[in-house]
Design a protein around this nucleic acid. Structure first.
Length: 586
DNA sequence: TCCAGGGGCGCG
DNA sequence: AAAGCGCGCCCCTGGA
């Protein structure tokens, strides 16, 4: 880009003592230059930090980048007070990346002994305030817990220096920006919540399980099934929830089950199988997403899980509470847009193999994925005969599968797409040697644990037991499968972060609904993200803006592709659906 | 009575 | 059809 960038303020916020919030200014922005040595600017004593966020955010020129120890300690309060932050740098998340990245391995930052910054654990996001009570409630929110000894100005300078001294500052800078943007999105997702119709959910449960039972009792439908199972197995005291109990009863009745797993039971020819599978299915619905779940997780028509950014080793998000990333398709009909609003549900098609094509620079695979269905493209390229074979084969390549149809496809795929297949093979070999691997942007896998190392050493000692070598070999392969998958899953997670970060900015530029809501609405008065699931997201939007949102979602995906892979011609097509409820997508 | 771990299953 | 990767959460069991 040829244009001159305007200086973006970097504002470092912390709470050195309980009575004051301190905001210090660093210039220039980390994104504009690698120079971390700007002077420390003014200090603003304050007790009401969202006002500062609001003032700084309203200043002319580019919005500042806020630097803080942990997004969850600062941002939920600002959101509750109606303030939106445009850019951030989360020191805890950035540190976790930089301390382990192979790109910074040669820097003093990576070599330094552990400090208090390494001990920071994710904190739960502050729960959103109940509707109406915002101003009064705000000052009661707990104080941020920054340890006084940990100076965020020192830390951010050290991080910027590490990035500048790394083997690829551009990639790391993008990764840190994306990770922090993800932290903002995660806080906003919790703040906004996923629209959830408790009445629809309750009706669904009642239709499937029977009316809500008294605490401690089984719903009627489930109880009927339990009775039938006991009759068929002639085991009057059987508790079908107890695996050992159930397995014993199955064996005693001569059913021939080796476990109580669904797919094992399905293979058996016995009249207990049908009611038992039905019982397990309904039981799962009841315990995982039944009335208790509804009571605990849905309030004011919103499901507000807590997302844990970087909670998975690969860089994927995890979630706490409510099983947010495991929402069964069975209950998605309860996810209903508000009146006058609608959902735009977008899903990145075959994200992981596309990311692999990009990383490997595999132009043949990129060509196979041009525009449409990558798996069909693999068939059309003549590599395999059917779409299902292409899918199984690619999954096997990325997960390390060796058996069955999946394994049989590997040689053909390797012939057609040598670069892509070679990349995952290399990653697997590195893992088997105990080495680390890295994603496109530089997130690096952990080293195997000490138990792994010891098992490797012991297996080849003089007095090693005969099966120690087998066990060690199995562990070796398992770690290879992990590193093989790490590069793909981790890079896909980076793509998704860039996608969301770009979309977040684009949605903010859209107009508010013509009929705004009542409560403070830093961003929920217009199209906004309400759900994220690895390669899929949901935007809740005023119905009149849905078409524009669909355009922006696609453009954000294209932008994410360019950010990760530059001019390499890898497409990232989306499946986009404009729907009133989540179950109507796909 | 508490808690770790296994079995199982939901999601990508 | 599960397998090969990554998760969270449920129930139950068995040991402290």
């Amino acid at each position: 880009m040829g244009r001159v960038r305007q200086t973006r303020l970097v504002l470092v916020v912390d709470r050195p003592d309980p009575s004051a919030v301190r905001v210090r200014t660093l210039v220039p922005d980390a994104a504009a230059t690698d120079d971390p040595s700007g002077p420390v600017g003014t200090t603003h004593p304050a007790t009401h930090w969202p006002d500062l966020a609001g003032q700084a955010g309203g200043a002319p020129g580019p919005a500042p980048r806020w630097v803080w120890d942990d997004t969850n300690l600062w941002y939920p309060q600002a959101l509750a007070a109606g303030r939106r932050v445009e850019r951030a740098h989360d020191l805890r998340l950035a540190r976790a990346i930089l301390r382990r990245s192979s790109l910074t391995a040669a820097t003093p930052y990576a070599a330094a002994p552990p400090s208090g910054w390494d001990e920071l654990r994710p904190v739960p996001a502050a729960p959103p305030p109940p509707a109406g009570g915002v101003e009064a409630l705000f000052d009661l929110l707990p104080a941020p817990r920054t340890a006084p000894a940990l100076d965020p100005v020192d830390e951010v300078r050290a991080q910027l220096a590490a990035v500048a001294a790394s083997t690829d500052p551009g990639r790391l800078r993008l990764l840190l920006a994306a990770e922090s943007a993800g932290a903002l999105v995660a806080a906003e997702l919790t703040h906004a919540g996923l629209p959830w119709r408790a009445d629809v959910h309750d009706a669904l449960l009642a239709a499937t399980l029977g009316p809500r039972p008294r605490p401690g009792e089984r719903p009627a439908r489930l109880e009927e099934l339990a009775v039938r199972i006991r009759e068929i197995l002639e085991s009057p005291a059987l508790n079908p929830d107890s695996h050992p109990d159930l397995l014993r009863a199955l064996q005693y009745a001569g059913v021939g089950a080796r476990s109580t797993r669904q797919w094992e039971l399905e293979k058996l020819d016995h009249r207990v199988v049908a009611p038992l599978l039905e019982y397990k299915k309904l039981s799962r619905l009841l315990t995982a997403n039944g009335w208790n779940w509804l009571d605990q997780w849905v309030t004011d028509g919103r499901f507000r899980p807590e997302y844990v950014v970087g909670g998975v080793v690969t860089g994927r998000w995890a979630a706490n509470g409510g099983g947010a990333l495991q929402l069964p398709h069975q209950v998605r009909s309860a996810v209903v847009a508000d009146p006058g609003w609608t959902f735009v549900v977008a899903d990145a098609a075959q994200l992981e193999p596309r990311v692999l094509a990009g990383m490997a620079g595999d132009l043949q695979m990129a060509e196979a994925g041009r525009g449409g269905d990558l798996y069909q493209g693999i068939v059309d390229a003549g590599a395999v005969a059917t779409r299902e074979q292409a899918k199984l084969g690619m999954l096997g390549a990325m997960y390390g599968g060796t058996t069955g149809e999946s394994g049989r496809m590997l040689p053909r795929l390797a012939r057609a797409f040598p670069r892509a297949l070679e990349l995952v093979e290399q990653a697997a070999r590195a893992g088997e040697r105990g080495e680390v691997v890295s994603t496109r942007l530089g997130r690096t896998s952990p080293r195997p644990g000490s138990a792994w190392q010891e098992a490797q050493g012991e297996a080849y000692g003089l007095d090693a037991p005969p099966d120690a070598q087998d066990a060690a070999r199995a562990q070796t392969r398992a770690w290879g499968r992990f590193t093989r998958n790490f590069v793909v899953q981790g890079t896909a997670a980076e793509w998704a972060l860039c996608w969301m970060a770009s979309l977040r900015t684009r949605l903010w530029a859209l107009p508010p609904a013509t009929r705004p809501g009542g409560a403070p609405a830093p961003f929920t008065d217009r199209a906004h993200l309400v759900f994220f699931l690895h390669d899929e997201l949901i935007v809740h939007t005023p119905a009149e803006h849905a078409a524009e949102v669909a355009v922006q979602v696609r453009e954000a995906a294209a932008e994410a592709g360019r950010l990760l892979f530059g001019d390499l011609p890898v497409d990232f097509p989306l499946t986009v659906a404009v729907v009133e409820s989540y179950d109507r997508a796909k």
